[in-house]
Design a protein around this nucleic acid. Structure first.
Lengths: 336, 336
DNA sequence: CTGTTAGCGCTTTCAG
DNA sequence: CTGAAAGCGCTAACAG
């Protein structure tokens, strides 16, 4: 390993002091043009690389944020990251990605690790089963944070997520308007706020229409081929005529299941998903879905976090990205 | 901002010197049990947080690696990250994720930024159109790196990727064996090695079977609804009877297109994808696909990088994760 | 087994 | 406009 090129060597090469070189680094207007040029030349010549680690030691901010997701394997989170990336890249900030894998212990370990690395803040999608002490844990670390998609507490902490209640409600209303009367909800147990809110919207709206609202079918969301008791229900003497799914992936799986049995979604049975993933626009049938705009959530979350990093004392904010329904063939749209 | 808790305050609290406390931090056996306990107690009591940034200033390694992807929005990359995460998490290493968005300039900027943050190495999926100076650029930064999925140069630099040539070849052979004679390739221009290798495997194998091998349809992969000239070709007087697609997402889109026109993939037309994404096992029809094992690629890449970080001088390694064909309904499998 | 002493590479007063 | 000097929090010899 050859000797590293430090700001000092640059300064020597340019014939100035280290302090002056440092000023050039940060585009300070206090340096003469001539000197600046000389320093910049020296940097190029030596192949100088700025050492942020050293700078961080003095300054407060590291220019990194932590991203704690519970399932980095899911396409939905990819979209979220895209939105986050879009805003942090302009702020010259970089994201450290860790995976809690829905495991609260691992989640905490990873958060601590992030803290050791000195991240300026955290975007966090709390693992299912996170205890409500999670937030105070993070606060004890003096880390600004914003929860996305799920929240641990109804009141505390910043939160950005889709309006699941409203979205699910829109979906149910749409189904009812299209004459569906026996509507099931497929997917997930109420293990976190995002699932609970969906179920709330589902029940509430069915109740409003005086319809049966207990057709809730849990599945293991990590496994797309798990449709829970849906097959049995479908084969029963009074099968449902529509299903709202936890997300698009599951909805696509249901559509596959129906098609394989000769039922055409959108004609014989209505299916609605949630998320509006790109593939939902090109499948057969195309999928009617609750738009949750993960990129938008990501953008908002990142912006909120950056703001909180600069103004740590501001009180908690919650941003609900309002949902809308993308109507396609699987319910309501024209089947070609 | 209250005074930060440093190792020094811990040492004072525990009544030892900073050096001793530092030893405790790193589980050195040179500290008496009794002292160790006292120090650990002090840490807990004070809520001490290890400052890696400061440690990095002395040591060589930061315990971070950079992950430079060209499209963090794609589900395929999610799987890759899952594999990488699996191995680095055990090594107590954390990944900084950046997105080149297929833009070589942005890619270089991001790599420089990672370097400033002191990453120990790089896992890099080179953006389409990366010039061959990219590798020397990175080497000049003294960064160990491994390319994944695509490579800039045939010979230089570590590389881990699926065996696209072989995989595509398997697909074509399978189609021929099932009586398909007019086989098209859908998706992508040969803008990077991963695309070129697919096309090579495609042409080579068709040639071997003495079949027409020029039915190559470029599409814009970022847009799933872009099927290029496929619709026209299908409507022409001598349409193809099978298509190998660049990836599963595109294959699903094609299947949607076919179904919407009353053609059943696997019966009237054969479709093969690539990647074996989870949804390909539950769609209708289920998708025959070239398994590229993104998680496996990720695992191998991460392992290779960690090895190269420890042994920087070792010569370049290339790992081809061999492909296989997952046979399902869209070609060869039983349509229920 | 524990303490002393130098730095790592940078920023930041404070004087020129 | 430029330089000198004092750290940021930690590790790594080297002495005790």
């Amino acid at each position: 390993m050859k000797k590293a090129i430090t700001l000092n060597s640059v300064a020597v090469e340019a014939g100035v002091s280290r302090a002056t070189a440092s000023l050039v680094l940060r585009d300070s207007p206090l340096v003469s043009l001539e000197t600046r040029d000389r320093v910049i030349c020296a940097m190029d010549k030596l192949g100088y690389i700025y050492n942020r680690g050293a700078a961080n030691l003095r300054g407060q901010k590291t220019g990194t944020i932590g991203l704690v997701l519970c399932d980095i394997g899911s396409p939905f989170y990819s979209q979220l990251m895209l939105g986050i990336d879009e805003v942090i890249v302009d702020a010259n900030i970089v994201a450290i990605l860790v995976n809690s894998a829905e495991n609260p212990d691992r989640q905490l370990r990873q958060i601590r690790r992030l803290r050791e690395h000195g991240v300026d803040g955290l975007i966090l999608c709390p693992a299912a089963g996170s205890s409500d002490t999670l937030l105070s844990e993070i606060e004890r670390l003096h880390l600004p944070f914003v929860q996305v998609l799920r929240h641990v507490s109804q009141r505390n902490g910043n939160y950005v997520g889709p309006d699941y209640i409203d979205g699910t409600s829109l979906a149910v209303t749409h189904l009812v308007r299209h004459g569906r009367r026996k509507i099931a909800f497929l997917g997930g147990k109420p293990v976190h706020s995002a699932a609970r809110e969906r179920l709330d919207g589902f029940r509430k709206t069915l109740k409003k229409h005086k319809l049966k609202h207990d057709l809730i079918i849990p599945t293991h969301l990590g496994n797309l081929s798990d449709l829970g008791s849906f097959p049995e229900l479908l084969a029963s003497s009074s099968p449902p005529d529509a299903v709202v799914c936890y997300n698009d992936m599951l909805a696509q799986s249901v559509m596959g299941y129906l098609l394989a049995r000769g039922k055409i979604p959108g004609r014989d049975f209505a299916v609605i998903g949630a998320d509006d993933l790109p593939q939902s626009a090109v499948s057969f049938p195309t999928l009617t879905t609750i738009v949750t705009d993960p990129m938008g959530v990501g953008r908002n979350a990142a912006r909120l976090l950056l703001d909180r990093i600069d103004n740590p004392t501001t009180s908690s904010t919650r941003i609900l990205v309002s949902g809308q329904l993308m109507i396609r063939q699987s319910c309501g749209g024209q089947l070609s």
